[in-house]
Amino acid sequence: MPIVELRDVVVLLGRFPALSGLNLSLNRAEVVLLQGPNGAGKSTLLRLCGGLLRPHSGSAVVLGHDLCTARAALRCRVGLLGHDSALYDDLSVVENLRFFAKAARLPPQTVVAALDRLELSRQLHSVPVRQLSAGQRRRVALATVVLRRPELWLLDEPHAGLDQEARNLLDELVAQAVSAGATVIVASHDHERTLNLATRTVTIVGGAVATQAQTAADTSSNRRL
């Protein structure tokens, strides 16, 4: 069964058709590089797959959940790293992560594990998110994704604002997740970086898929199920 199955999906933002009849079918453990010009609908597609938007028309099923009816159930199983970090500014790094861990009914030790995985120094743990730099904030946001061990990773320009070290770390995390059976969709302009991981590239223009192609990474590996 495909992980993502979108047929003729239209999504409206206000009255603007951000997605204008998009078709996409993804299998387990694929790594998809999403590209396209600004305003093509990449972020909207990620937010749709994350269960944050309701399709205006068409059929959309992600991880077996119909997006018209079962978005809440889906949201527990995906990890979305958006443009904004979706953190509470006035809470500290640890408090933010503890909140998300408790909400997802995860044991408290996962919080420290996730922060360590993102190599966030202990001094930063009790600092309010408001005081963090853009890159540090991004790492904390990534930690909230890692924490939940999602089956579907949705990364919107994940490399933006990250230093070289963090970028390598991100690639490592993605590779690990995929080998554990997760599916990943990455929207990125940083082609060279993401390409060596991607099994497929999908180009979106005008809110629909313009082209898609399998990549070398896919044909050379046999991790696809």
Partner: peptide, 19 residues
């Protein structure tokens, strides 16, 4: 405002807490 600044409302939804 707590929930709309910087996409936090999204965080609340993604958190998986019952409305």
């Amino acid at each position: 405002m707590i929930e709309i600044s910087d996409g936090a409302r999204r965080a609340l939804l993604l958190g998986g807490i019952e409305p």
